[in-house]
Computed example of a mutant assay.
Amino acid sequence: MSISGLNTLKKGQHYTAKELDSFVSTTEAVVLSNNDNQLFTDPEREYKVTHEFNGFFEHSMEDAEKHFREKKAYVVEKV
């Protein structure tokens, strides 16, 4: 898979941490991992996309309200 052309992730597919790093750096998206803060520590480690969402709710500190953000969010798990 070409790292430079990665502009979306597909549920069920495997990606290396290097590919996910490139994706996050160039795309307006959120990636959640079951690997805590170690997602990018091993560039060759593979992750599987288990869920894909079109947005999420977020609490705003500015107005103390919850707002829906239309932003792609993906859940990945270590393979």
Rank of each mutant, 00 (worst) to 15 (best):
V75G: 00
F57P: 00
R69P: 00
H51A: 09
S60R: 03
E70R: 13
F56Q: 06
F56A: 06
F68Q: 10
D63F: 04
E58G: 03
H59F: 06
H59Q: 11
K66V: 04
E52Y: 02
R45S: 15
H67V: 10
G55W: 14
R45V: 11
E70M: 13
F40P: 04
H59P: 00
K66I: 03
K72D: 06
E62T: 04
K78A: 10
T50I: 15
E77L: 03
V49P: 00
H51S: 08
E70D: 15
D42M: 12
E65S: 07
T41N: 15
F56C: 08
K66T: 07
K72C: 02
H67W: 07
E70W: 09
M61N: 09
Y47A: 14
F56S: 07
H67P: 08
H59V: 05
R69K: 15
V49A: 06
E70A: 15
E46P: 01
D42W: 09
H51E: 12
F57C: 01
K48R: 13
T50W: 02
A73Q: 13
T50C: 06
K72I: 01
K48L: 07
T50L: 10
V49R: 01
K78I: 08
Y47R: 10
H51R: 11
F40H: 13
V76P: 00
T50H: 03
F53P: 04
D63S: 04
N54I: 10
D63K: 05
T41P: 01
D63M: 03
F57T: 05
F57R: 04
A64H: 10
H59I: 04
Y74H: 02
F40W: 12
F57Q: 05
Y74S: 01
A64M: 09
E77H: 05
H67E: 07
F56P: 14
Y74M: 02
F68P: 12
G55V: 13
S60I: 01
Y74W: 03
V76L: 05
P43T: 13
S60K: 03
F53H: 12
E62F: 02
F53R: 07
E44Q: 12
N54F: 03
Y74C: 03
E58Q: 13
E58N: 09
D42T: 15
E62Y: 01
A64Q: 11
E65L: 08
A64L: 11
K71A: 06
E65K: 12
F53G: 04
V75T: 04
V76E: 03
E65W: 00
T41K: 15
V49E: 04
F53E: 11
A64S: 09
E52N: 02
D42C: 14
F68R: 11
N54T: 14
F56E: 07
T41I: 14
P43E: 15
K71V: 15
E58P: 00
H59E: 11
S60W: 00
V76S: 03
E44Y: 05
E62V: 05
V49S: 03
M61P: 01
K66F: 07
F40E: 12
K66D: 11
F40T: 11
R69H: 13
F56G: 08
E44K: 12
E58D: 10
F68L: 12
R45Q: 15
A73E: 09
F57L: 02
